[in-house]
Amino acid sequence: MSLGKNPKATRLRGGWGREWKKYRELYLLFAIPLIILILFKYIPMYGAQIAFRNYKPTKGVLGSDWVGMKYFIKFFESAYFKTTITNTLVLNLYTLATFPLGVIFALMLKYAPLRRFGKTVQMVSYAPHFISTVVVCGLVTLFMNSRIGMVNKVIELFGGTAANWLGRTGAFKHIYVWSDVWQHLGFNSVIFISALAGVSSELHEAAVVDGASLLQRIFHVDIPGIAPTFIIMLILRVGSLMNIGYEKVLMLQNDLNRGASEIISTYTYKIALQSQVPQYSYAAAIGLFTSLVNLILLFGVNRATKSLSGSSLW
């Protein structure tokens, strides 16, 4: 992932006139993406200042009164602050905890004794990734149906009792996380599979000659070999810790499980776009708060891993 700056910055002689003459077509090419970014990314960022204003649609962004941190303080003091933050963190940290499964799955495929079987599992494991979130959520609700859902019938088969699982606050996080694992595990492991294929085979040979067991080879050759890839993926994942997956949460949410499923982004959506009296500024303040926390997390994790292991995004 080349997310850093070019180490060998080219030194060009001559002034800007010459530069323009030589590269004007490139600058023209860049104008197209630049317009898109300005229109749909940078202007909304500028518009995010409504978080500090009492936004009235009739007055516009700049015409609305400046109220400073009012809406941020309102959020910190509201009853929803603790619930939404807790739920967001629980869902995301739980998802993050399943992240190493991608590595384990890749290792299992690498050492699967029957090659054809391994290949088949690998190919089938990508399939759910191509199904849309809407369909996955639809399947989850169908399977969880308390009367005729497939999951409940399996539970009854093994002697358990059927229940309306989606209506239970305690079950929500498990449903959310494990349906995610089901959908994305195979595809998320692709990058580790390719990293494993790049681990030096001489190291493996040497380990075998030295009498290393399979597990020893995995822990001392494979895992150190893919650690940099793992760390980069982990940083990227942590950087979006606060805002991942709200489309899915929104669809799995119902009145019964709201206590566990109301996260920051669904709450923002609700108070601004679903309520009778849209609280634009308040919602924008919560959104901005989330973006800032993400940014801080990303920088923090990046710095931490850089000093710990030397791998970093930039």
Binding site: A284, T290, L295
Partner: peptide, 8 residues
């Protein structure tokens, strides 16, 4: 890495 947010 940074986004204006849903509402803006």
């Amino acid at each position: 890495y940074f986004d204006g947010g849903l509402i803006p």
